[in-house]
Design a protein around this nucleic acid. Sequence first.
DNA 1: CTTGACTCTGTACAATAGTACGGAGTTTAT
DNA 2: ATAAACTCCGTACTATTGTACAGAGTCAAG
Lengths: 140, 140
Amino acid sequence: MTIGKVAKKSGVGVETVRFYERKDLVAQPPKPPFGGFRIYPEETVERIRFIRQAQKLGFSLLEIKELLSLRLDPASNCADIRDRAQVKLNEITRKIVGMKRIQTALEKLITACPGQGAIQVCSIIDAIEAPEKTKEGEKS
Amino acid sequence: MTIGKVAKKSGVGVETVRFYERKDLVAQPPKPPFGGFRIYPEETVERIRFIRQAQKLGFSLLEIKELLSLRLDPASNCADIRDRAQVKLNEITRKIVGMKRIQTALEKLITACPGQGAIQVCSIIDAIEAPEKTKEGEKS
DNA sequence: CTTGACTCTGTACAATAGTACGGAGTTTAT
DNA sequence: ATAAACTCCGTACTATTGTACAGAGTCAAG
């Protein structure tokens, strides 16, 4: 596959593929020694698709690079990989908790909506500032 | 409160507060008519804290602005707010699903780790590329 | 074997999200 | 009442994540 095919199959522009190469997010295949174009494996398409999906979930390219470096293969130190995976898992779990708070706040807002007058219910801000709401008097 | 206090309480720099003002993410209080510094309400601190938390969850400032505009108060059209909240809710629910896929992939990688030889189990990529794995036959 | 499409390299431009700084005005602590 | 600390305003610089383009080389179809 040439770079144009990779770009088309993964839904990005050629320039974006090259950009990811410069950033070492995908490997650049060697140039054929007697002229011609670089040949890309199918794997590159999968990596780029992963990158784009992960970006939509809010990961930066640096974070994605870290995620992509977590592979159990014969060449990697198992304990090291596992520790780094655990760190990433903790981060992601925290993110999911935060997202769920916003999700809950939106659900509350939607259900509160049709039956109210002037109550000023449920600014989204409460979704995240959740602690500190009951400083004294009522316990959680 | 002057801007420096706001910055300190919300954990950002003064320049960042001004930046958010320029972007209309927080309101800029009026300048006292006969000289002096602007006075900020506590609410500004809460908004900035929300902004920073939401950013950590992967929302852009534009998305955060949209979230912050979803408030049930007497001045807003209830049906409009509800519809926009529903759109945001769908987006966030989809994000949570995607994050959970990565979470599961990391968990699998971590548990697979201690007892393997050369299996090349569980690249994170599988977390997202889940569909499309078996289109025809078993040759891959 | 020419033409058009594609690749390669390098550089430049763009949007988002800040961060830094200069110079003037204001407040406050000593 | 003066110096330190802070505010205000504008501009400019940074990093991330791309996009665009110029000019030369390469490939493949008619």
